[in-house]
Design a protein around this nucleic acid. Sequence first.
DNA 1: TTCAGTTGGTATACGATGTATATGAAATGC
DNA 2: GCATTTCATATACATCGTATACCAACTGAA
Lengths: 109, 109
Amino acid sequence: MPKGDALGGFEQLVLLALAHLGDNAYGVTIRQEIAARTGRDVNIGAVYATLDRLEAKSLTRSRTGEPTALRGGRAKRYFELTAEGARALEESVRAIESMIRGLNWGELG
Amino acid sequence: MPKGDALGGFEQLVLLALAHLGDNAYGVTIRQEIAARTGRDVNIGAVYATLDRLEAKSLTRSRTGEPTALRGGRAKRYFELTAEGARALEESVRAIESMIRGLNWGELG
DNA sequence: TTCAGTTGGTATACGATGTATATGAAATGC
DNA sequence: GCATTTCATATACATCGTATACCAACTGAA
């Protein structure tokens, strides 16, 4: 990995949410996924801003879906990982895991 | 966790390095620990800047050690986690682990 | 048939975080 | 003493994270 393109913490979170959601990833579900797994109640604007930045870096791509026959069911913007995004995510997960490995929680603080 | 005090990605990395290094954590070794585990060649200035911010948030504390009898062996500034820092780190590791759990790498990209 | 109510997205601004560059200070060894 | 080595600090700027506010599209019922 060339230096300088490490993922930010929130970018990593959003990419992980995409990975879990598969073909049902759009603003609202992404936010829910993060909240459900981490307990962190993120702002929806933060999610979209980050998705835009990820797309600008070619780590994600998006398409507009069809409206659904539900009250307020307007068309969604679906997001997915690109191959490059999947690679960056794997790399970044590997990095954090190797930092976590072997920690002795008992001796901290 | 009260909203707003989530750790940044690099802050988390630095705290993890502290956790591994125990009583031998100072600028140079912290940098080495991160590089050795992640392959990421971080800038020393970035490390100190982050340590200062962590200390401002009471997640770490520091003290100045004794000079050593080595060429260039000037006094080091040692860093360690506070109890609060250890808690924040555990919390943040738990969050990322629950985001990683159950991922199916094969279906990405 | 229009408008309240609901879902979902966009714009933008700003503070926090991440990073590079440059400089400073204290020690040793010759 | 002065070059050399280790370690720390200062500063400036780019990127990321977050809040606030607003806009758009659709349904259902008056």
